[in-house]
Write a protein that binds this DNA or RNA. Structure first.
Length: 110
DNA sequence: AGAGTGACTGGCT
DNA sequence: GAGCCAGCCACTC
């Protein structure tokens, strides 16, 4: 193992996502110059088990679907976590997802 | 070394 | 909006 180089970068970005907002794998990948590695972002999130401080529920796919909800303890865990933060979820999709979208390459300045 | 898989995306239908 | 296909990189067997 020990290959969590860009993993840490992904975690750092996700960690900076403000509550009540969501981001996409593609946005993170593009921000980290890993555009072709959007899937890798998801794979990186696979290691979120060792990073409880990473709000993976705020990371959804490009259409706002909670594609990773299955990886949470329960199928509704991710949705509830988002709703608690004020993010409305309908049929596993984030309501007004585009409005709640938080793009690191635009809103975040490093 | 080769093939399969995956928390994705873009384009087209 | 929803579905299908192809491209991409990393990891596992």
């Amino acid at each position: 193992m020990e290959k969590r180089d860009y993993f840490e970068e992904v975690y750092e970005v996700v960690r900076q996502v403000p509550p009540g907002r969501v981001t996409t794998y593609g946005a993170i990948a593009q921000f980290l110059s890993l555009r072709a590695g959007a899937r890798m972002v998801g794979w990186a999130m696979n290691g979120c088990h060792a990073r409880p401080d990473v709000p993976a529920q705020r990371v959804v796919n490009r259409v706002g679907v909670l594609s990773g909800k299955h990886f949470f303890g329960t199928p509704t865990r991710m949705q509830e976590l988002l709703e608690v933060e004020g993010v409305r979820v309908n049929d596993d999709r984030v309501v007004e997802f585009q409005k709640l979208l938080w793009d690191p390459s635009i809103e975040l300045t490093i």
